[in-house]
Amino acid sequence: MQRQHPQSCSRGCLLSVPHTGQFCARVLRRQLLLAVRRPIEIGNPLLFFAIVIVLFPLGLGPSPERLVSFAPGVLWITALLSNLLTSDAVFRSDFDDGSLEQLILAPQPLFFSALAYILAHWLTTGLLLAAVSPVFALMLNLPVSALGALFVSLLLGTAVLSLLGGIGAALTVGLKRGGILISLLILPLYMPVLIFGTAAVQAAMTGAPSGPYLAILGAMLSLAIALAPLAIATGLKVSIDA
């Protein structure tokens, strides 16, 4: 059993590793493939979203006028909760099988690989929630004119939620039961997103421009992209160290 490249050691010290972009693409592809191979993980938040939305007409009564006044809040809170449900799992299986140790030791900056994990999470939850939301919005009698604002606000907002959820996931991944703790940690951070998300939809319902609210959501997203991966990377290192 001879090593194929006995001289490879001298090369190795020059570190022929993929550059950060290639590595992030690899991580993203890996995470997406893992998600596709376990479709129930993708389906769960969507089913949760559907079932909870259906509960509201049962609880509030089926009158279309009443439903439409609650619709923006109902849709947004349900999307927020289904995002929260899946946040816990972002790093969980990688922690359990040791992949997370390897990720932390990788020569590429953890900032960007953490961002790739979150992007994969958003693509399999937030993006899909935003895509199906117009159907459920019509069920709650939301006017068609507000559907665009709902879609865009969810698109931007769930990305912020995924980034914030990643911070909670990174901090609690080392705990055996982090489920409740992660909710307590990150739900307060979700509040501003909820406020401006529902405000955008309500504005569109009344015919007011929803642009300013969406711009604020966009600003939140930019801030979260810049700062959340720092917190996630540090949280992961602390969780692995403990």
Partner: peptide, 8 residues
Amino acid sequence: WHVSGAGL
């Protein structure tokens, strides 16, 4: 696709 960031 190992997450250790080694070569391609």
